[in-house]
C-alpha cells in the first residue's frame, strides 16, 4: 500500500470555486430534518412554540444548513468532476467542521459558496486515499456571513 498520488488534473482543481447557489430556509424542511435526526427540540419542530420564542420563527438546528441539506446543490456533480480528474471511485464522508456565526431560521435566504480548499494524498485503512476538503461559506439576505463549514471526503 502507498499514499494516493494527486494527479496534475486534480491539483488544478484546488482553489476552484463552484457557481454560488441561492436557497431559502423553510420551516417544513427544518421540521422534516429535525424528525429524521430524532431532535425533538420545540424550536426546530413546533411552529407555535417557536413563534413565541425570542426568535419568533422556527429555527434551523445547527448543521441543518450545509451539505447536502436543502441547498439545491448537486454534490454528486462535483464528485463526478473529481472522478474525471483522477479521483478513485470509492467515496466516504470523513468529517466536518462548523463555525456557527449567527442563527439561521425559517425565511432566511442564503448564498452558498463552495471552494475546493485542499486535495491531498494519504494512505488509510481503505488503501491509497484522496482527501478532499471543501470550504463552504453561507451569507444571508442581510449580507452577514452566518456559517462556514469544512467538509472532508475520502476517495479510495
Amino acid at each position: 500500500m502507498a499514499a494516493f498520488v494527486v494527479t496534475d488534473g486534480l491539483k488544478q482543481l484546488i482553489g476552484q470555486k463552484e457557481r454560488p447557489v441561492v436557497f431559502k430556509i423553510e420551516e417544513g424542511a427544518i421540521q422534516r430534518y429535525a424528525r429524521a435526526v430524532g431532535d425533538s427540540n420545540p424550536l426546530f419542530n413546533d411552529i407555535e412554540y417557536a413563534a413565541q420564542s425570542k426568535w419568533g420563527r422556527v429555527m434551523a438546528p445547527p448543521g441543518f444548513t450545509g451539505w447536502p441539506v436543502a441547498s439545491g446543490f448537486d454534490m454528486f456533480k462535483l464528485f463526478e468532476k473529481l472522478a474525471a480528474a483522477g479521483a478513485p471511485m470509492g467515496l466516504l464522508d470523513g468529517g466536518v467542521e462548523y463555525d456557527f456565526l449567527a442563527p439561521i431560521g425559517d425565511g432566511d435566504i442564503l448564498v452558498m459558496e463552495i471552494k475546493i480548499a485542499a486535495i491531498e494524498g494519504r494512505e488509510t485503512k481503505m488503501g491509497p486515499t484522496m482527501v478532499t476538503t471543501l470550504e463552504n461559506t453561507f451569507t444571508n439576505q442581510r449580507g452577514a456571513v452566518v456559517l462556514i463549514t469544512r467538509n472532508t471526503f475520502l476517495n479510495f
Partner: peptide, 25 residues
C-alpha cells in the same frame, strides 16, 4: 453528527449558543 449537535443543543438550552462543532468519522 446531527446526534452530536442534538447532544450539545439539549445540554446548553435555549439561552446557550453553539459556536463551533467538528467531528470525524
Amino acid at each position: 453528527r446531527a446526534w452530536l449537535v442534538n447532544l450539545m443543543t439539549d445540554w446548553i438550552g435555549e439561552k446557550g449558543g453553539l459556536k463551533k462543532l467538528s467531528c470525524r468519522y
